[in-house]
Amino acid sequence: MALPACLLVFTFLILPFFMAFGLSLTNQRLVSPNPTEFVGLDNFKKMLGVSFLIIEPEMDEAGHIKLDNEGNPIYPRVRNFTRNQEDFPQFYKKREWFQLGLQDGKVLVVLSQDVVFLKALANTMLFALVVCPVQAGLALFLALLINQPLRGINIFRTIYFAPVVISMVVVSMLWRFIYDGQNGLLNTLMQMFSFGLFEPIDWLGNTSTALPAIMAMSVWQGVGFHMVIWLSGLQTIPLSHYEVARIEGATRWQTFRYVTWPSLRNTAILVMVIITMQAFTLYPQIQVMTRGGPLDSTQSLVFQAVIRGYEKQDISGGSAISVILFLLVLSISLFQRYLTREKN
């Protein structure tokens, strides 16, 4: 009787999962007249490989550091190293990811063949790192707020939860308008509350604000979901525990710290696991709002997997990103489990 469902799970979940591992070791394309070849870890080497280059300021003949008009030292162009196959074969066709200043004016340049992937990786981690605690914390705050015996509290619960039932695609479209640089609602509201002091910002068009804007929107959409999970955890705590705390004369913070929080440990694990998984699969927001731009500041792993695997028909490249994404999710959920198990 379990057979039909198991077969479906096997064909459409487990099989493609293992295929992703296999394909990531080949040069498979969606449609190609050429035979598929086994290429080993090449895809991963291309994506994850970095090399380091240290550049020194240019010197004039007298041995002084050359300065530009603003008094900053002039460095040789990284391009001179990366497009010069004869002298620097190890840097050939690589691109600058970021720079670090060292002592004596030397600069360490980190080079990679696939800067877009590395940016997508960094953005996705940053997104998860910010969204998980913020969303879990706000959701707990809302749950505590909603858990009060107040008249009409269910109305507020209904409202807070409402964004959850709206598609992320719709939400992203809507917020594109809210974040608009010229006619956006957010700029309007900010200006109103700051009495005109606030300078309008092109939230999604700016490399420094685009990812935070998407983070804020994602929290807005998802926080109601986790509020309800916290709430169900809160409601399993027997009232007698609070009664005892009250008789002992505990303050509100003490009650939370010593009665509420310890009972929520299992809920906390669940909330964190779900949020982490959702955060790592950041996709519709990017697809609808920014398509990775401006200047790759909102690239995400899933978005890149789709761009490569589907739009550029490079199945193996897309699969390699999927494998990395899965390993990330797996190691983080194992890590979370380990952290919480230790305390029990």
Partner: peptide, 29 residues
Amino acid sequence: MADIANGADVADTLDTAADEIDADIDQNS
């Protein structure tokens, strides 16, 4: 084009783009 419009380094961006197109052509023999 979008990256250059947003202020990315021109030569680096075009280098990367050219490499990517060539890699794709290579991959398809």
